[in-house]
């Protein structure tokens, strides 16, 4: 299959394939494997960290990422060029993370009630040499309601625009801005309260 001229060879010598080409490969039964490899190469790491920031534990992030990629394969025919491929991938990854948290919370609790247990996991999962402020930041994020957490992470860590976050989360841009504002305020309050 021919690739776009926009596909360029980067300075590491590996091919940087455009999202349009990956999407086209994904919809071709004979090139699915190639498409999946390219997605993992290009988006595997950002998707892993996006999921990990939501679910905290590495094992859970591993399950979610695997399920995300299987869903990418299963529902590849539903992908529309209307949205960027990255937004579609983040949307699937976000849904998988929320699904895992929902399963964890059971019937009686909501995902937002998991804050304390996620906060406890942050310290357990942190590397021994991790900076204390970074741990506090992750604890503060873990305590946020799911929607605020998603918006904050996508904006702060993934540098997504509100328009892109809208494509992933679905809320209006104004609602997203409000969520981000509240999230930042809560995080600042938490860190100021707990910082030595």
């Amino acid at each position: 299959m021919k690739r776009d001229q926009s596909d360029i060879v980067n300075n590491q010598g590996s091919l940087s394939v455009s999202d349009e080409s990956i999407a086209r490969l994904l919809c071709d039964d004979n090139h699915v494997e190639e498409a999946v490899r390219l997605i993992m190469k290009k988006y595997g790491e950002p998707l892993y960290w996006h999921i990990r920031r939501m679910v905290v534990a590495h094992d859970d992030a591993e399950d979610c990422l695997q399920e995300t990629m299987i869903n990418v394969y299963k529902y590849r025919s539903t992908y529309s060029n209307e949205y960027p491929l990255s937004s579609w991938l983040y949307k699937i990854a976000t849904n998988e993370s929320l699904k895992l948290l929902k399963n964890r919370s059971g019937f009686t609790l909501s995902v937002d009630d998991l804050g304390d247990s996620l906060k406890d996991s942050v310290r357990e999962e942190a590397a021994p040499d991790a900076d204390e402020t970074l741990i506090l930041l992750q604890e503060a994020i873990a305590l946020l309601p799911a929607k605020q957490k998603m918006v904050f992470n996508l904006r702060y860590y993934d540098d997504k625009s509100y328009e892109e976050i809208h494509q992933i989360v679905g809320d209006s841009v104004n609602t997203l801005k409000t969520n981000y504002h509240y999230a930042v305020q809560k995080i600042k309050d938490y860190i100021l309260e707990h910082q030595l």
Partner: peptide
């Protein structure tokens, strides 16, 4: 604070 994570992959 930067974008670093306290976890390792």
């Amino acid at each position: 604070l930067g974008r670093e994570m306290p976890y390792k992959m």
